[in-house]
Amino acid sequence: MTEFNAYTKEVLKRFTNPKNFGEIKNPDGVGQVGNPVCGDVMKIYLKVDKKPEKIKNIKFQTFGCVSAIASSDALCELAKGKTIEEAKKITNQAIIDKLEGLPSIKIHCSVLGASGLKKAIEDYEFKIGKISKKSIKDDDK
C-alpha cells in the first residue's frame, strides 16, 4: 500500500504520458482481459522475434482508470525485449514494484496487467502451434 493510499509519482508519470499505448498491425499474439461491466478492459498486442524468441514489441489499449493505464504501460516496459519464457514469469507484484506502489483498492489493475500478458503469450503459442488449447477463457471480451 502506498502512503495515504495515494498515487505514486511513477503512476502519474506513466498515466499522463504512457510510452507504449497503441495497436500493433498483424500482431503475433493478442490478449484481451477484463470486461467493461466490471470496470476495466485491457488489450495487449505482441510482436515476437523468432530466433531468439523474444518480445520485439508490445503495446496496449486500455479502457480503465489511472492505475489501469499506468499498469498497462509498466507491463509493456517490463516485457519488452524479454524472451517468452522470461515474460511468462512477470507477476503483478513486478508491475506494482515498477510503479513504486499502487493504492490497495487498485491492486486488481496490476493483476489485470499480468493476466493480459499471459493471455497474449498464450495466443501467440497457440498460433505457432506450440500449444493446442488455450487455458484462459476467451469469453470475457
Binding site: L12, F15, T16, G64, C65, V66, I69
Partner: peptide
C-alpha cells in the same frame, strides 16, 4: 462513452 471517468478525472488533476 468508451473511456473511464476516473481516468479523465486523473488527467484533469494533473
Amino acid at each position: 462513452n468508451n473511456i473511464e471517468g476516473e481516468a479523465i478525472g486523473g488527467f484533469l488533476d494533473s
